Amino acid sequence: MRRHALHAATWAAGLATGLTACAIALAHGDVTPQAVDTHELPSLGEGWRDQNPYRAKDGSQDIAVRIGTSAFNQNCARCHGLEAISGGIAPDLRRLDNDCASMKDAAKKTACMVENDQYFLTTVRNGRSRNGAVYMPPFEGTLNQEAIWSIKAYLETRREKPM
């Protein structure tokens, strides 16, 4: 009798764990990357930029932030949180370049920002996986350069520590 009770308890625990995992996965909704309409932004060309071209205050920044907000909500918020405030599932992207914010030397701060831009671009383009498990899907081929940099422009408005 005990053996059957132990078997039933083990089976029930396994079922509960499986259902919890399914519920967590489904809570993120459709994680298929969504294309972003960037026709309002000037084309950045074929070659990938090594830093955010929409950081400059040249008029394209406002459009990029608007497009980036929508693109973030469509593609990133389900894991990184609404308004980039993570609930713990994925990194809080408001902190992406916190290390740069406290730097006093302008040249070092610029180099830090470029390094963060390159990390962001590589991560978004290629995604993240570990031991065969996909933690973030790759967006290259779905999001063009303009869309990716517009998301970064939006995230720069959400910074935890202002530059």
Rank of each mutant, 00 (worst) to 15 (best):
H80F: 05
R78W: 00
R125F: 02
N116C: 07
Q61D: 09
K108Y: 08
A90T: 10
G81I: 12
N116M: 11
R94Q: 11
A64K: 01
C76Q: 04
V114T: 13
F120Y: 05
R125M: 11
A90K: 11
A106D: 06
V114I: 15
R125Y: 04
N126V: 08
E83R: 02
R94F: 03
D92M: 01
I89T: 13
I67H: 01
G127T: 08
L93S: 02
C76V: 11
N75R: 00
A111I: 11
Q74A: 12
G68M: 04
R125T: 11
K108V: 06
D97I: 02
A84T: 14
G88T: 13
D99T: 15
Q74D: 13
S102P: 07
T122P: 04
I67R: 03
G81W: 02
A64V: 11
F72T: 08
A106C: 05
S60P: 06
G59F: 01
R95V: 12
I63F: 02
G81R: 03
R94W: 01
D92P: 14
E115V: 09
C112G: 08
A107F: 04
G127W: 01
V65W: 03
T69Y: 00
T123Y: 00
I85C: 06
N75H: 04
P91W: 09
T110D: 10
Q74H: 06
S70N: 10
A77Y: 00
R78N: 13
N116G: 13
Q61R: 15
G81H: 04
T122N: 15
K109Q: 15
A77L: 09
K104S: 12
T123I: 10
A101L: 08
D99I: 14
A71H: 02
A71Q: 03
A64T: 08
S102K: 14
A111D: 15
V114D: 03
A106K: 15
R94Y: 03
R78Q: 14
A101N: 06
G127R: 00
T110V: 08
C76M: 04
D58S: 10
N116F: 01
A101P: 04
D62T: 11
N126L: 10
E83W: 01
A111L: 10
L82C: 06
G81S: 09
V65K: 00
T69C: 07
L93G: 01
K104V: 10
N116S: 15
R94K: 13
L121V: 14
R94H: 06
T122W: 05
K57T: 09
T69Q: 10
P91S: 08
N98F: 03
T122L: 12
A71D: 00
Q61W: 05
E83D: 12
T123P: 10
L96W: 02
R95F: 09
Q118L: 11
N73R: 10
K109Y: 04
Y119P: 07
R125H: 07
V114L: 06
T123E: 02
